[in-house]
Simulated assay, not measured.
Amino acid sequence: MYADAEDGHGRPERGRWAAPTRRPPGPQDRPESAHWFEAIAGFAPAPAFVRDGQGRYLWVNAAYAHLYRMAPDVVIGRTVEEIDTPADAAMFRALDREVLQSGRPVRHTLSFHHPDGLPRQVTGHRFVLDAGCGPRVGGIYVDLTEHTRTLEERNVADEELHALRERSGLAVVALDLSGRVRRVSGGAARLLGSGRSALEGSWATEHLDDDGEVGTVRGIWADLVAGRTPRYSGSVVCRTASGGHRVLRTDLAVVRRHGAPDHIAAVLTALSAEFHGRPRVSPVQLRVLTSMAAGSPNTTIAAQLGLSRQALDYHLRRLGGVLDAASRPAMVARAYALGILDATAWPPRAVDAPGRS
């Protein structure tokens, strides 16, 4: 800086350079950015600490103290032996010595326990800090505990789903949003009498019995994909690999990924034995069947349907021929075996009866 000075004769001289007076640096000389950094580090989400060579905490941020359910000022000044379990404290001491002796930072993943016994896992760096007052050990870590626990729970859920799909015999089919089969379980392949390789990659509509069912399924499918309904339950007649047919209960549900529909999961349940040429019964004959299945005598059935005894006998003879059954019990049994009557419902009703959703 410029200052007034005296010449050799005691007269003042102006404009000469004078050396500044030096004073020791104080807290007021710290750059403003250092205060900002300290504030940010104190509340950063990554746990961080500084310890001396004796394992005593000199500084920790809030995230590090939170690992131990403590406040930072409770941790600072204590040693690792006062904070951690004996086994964990010995491990941390050994890691500190390794870093101090080598002078090189180390990246690692640590598993340890809270004093209350709860397991924790972190990953990060441990390194040497030397600010002129002796070596210090610093560490910055990311807490993986919740992430690890979530992954473990997901693995368990995946294993349970795999066991349910592959080992329970449940017939499960995964289809993409266009209706193409992505994956089938062993139970689904057996139900349709086919191999997985023949089913996967095919279109779902290829396995339906007639065009009428295809049109109905397309409408339901559009509602599922558009989000107008989250699930649907109904029955369909499917073709089997041997050229026969089988009535299946089909439970469809939308599987979402990141909030958007990703694919459709279908659970199939057999409602009939495999048959070739499913008998077609008239609406009146279907009502006669449901009444017989409920145990109603002929007089009650005739009264309920408004039929004469002769008219009821005619329909019974026709039913016997259509179902290839010689008695009332045989007609009912055949109706259930062929999927005409719903084996999961009471009172008896037809598989195609409305009200299933």
Rank of each mutant, 00 (worst) to 15 (best):
D4M: 12
H9R: 13
R11D: 14
R11C: 14
A18L: 15
R23G: 07
P27Y: 08
W36E: 14
A39N: 13
D52C: 00
Q54D: 11
W59A: 08
V60L: 05
A65Q: 07
Y68G: 00
Y68A: 05
M70N: 08
A71P: 08
E82S: 02
D84A: 13
D84H: 05
T85E: 04
D88E: 05
A90Q: 11
A90F: 08
F92N: 02
R93Q: 09
A94R: 04
V99N: 04
V99R: 06
L100V: 08
G103M: 10
R104S: 12
P105I: 10
T109N: 07
S111Q: 12
H113G: 04
H114D: 14
P115K: 03
P115G: 10
D116M: 11
D116L: 08
L118W: 14
P119F: 01
R120H: 11
G124V: 05
R126I: 10
V128K: 00
L129D: 01
A131F: 14
A131Q: 14
P135K: 15
G138Y: 06
G138H: 03
V142W: 12
V142N: 06
D143S: 02
T145R: 06
E146K: 12
T148G: 14
R154V: 15
N155L: 15
D158A: 15
D158I: 14
L161T: 05
L164T: 06
S168W: 06
G169I: 11
V173A: 06
A174C: 12
L175R: 00
D176I: 09
L177E: 01
S178P: 08
G186V: 09
A189P: 05
L191T: 02
L191M: 10
L191F: 01
S194R: 09
G195K: 05
L199D: 01
E200P: 11
T205D: 09
E213N: 06
V214Y: 05
G215F: 15
T229V: 12
P230W: 02
S235L: 03
V237P: 03
R239H: 11
A241K: 08
G243L: 09
L248I: 07
L248F: 09
L248N: 00
T250V: 14
T250Y: 01
D251M: 11
A253M: 07
V254E: 08
R257E: 12
A260R: 08
D262Q: 11
V267Q: 01
L271D: 07
E274Q: 06
H276V: 09
G277R: 05
S282P: 07
V288M: 01
V288I: 03
L289H: 00
T290Q: 02
M292P: 02
G295V: 07
G295E: 11
P297W: 00
T299L: 08
I301P: 03
A303W: 00
L307A: 00
L312W: 05
Y314W: 13
H315W: 06
G321N: 10
V322I: 10
S327M: 10
A335S: 03
A337H: 04
G339E: 03
I340Q: 00
A343S: 15
T344L: 07
W346H: 12
W346C: 09
P348Y: 02
R349G: 04
A353M: 00
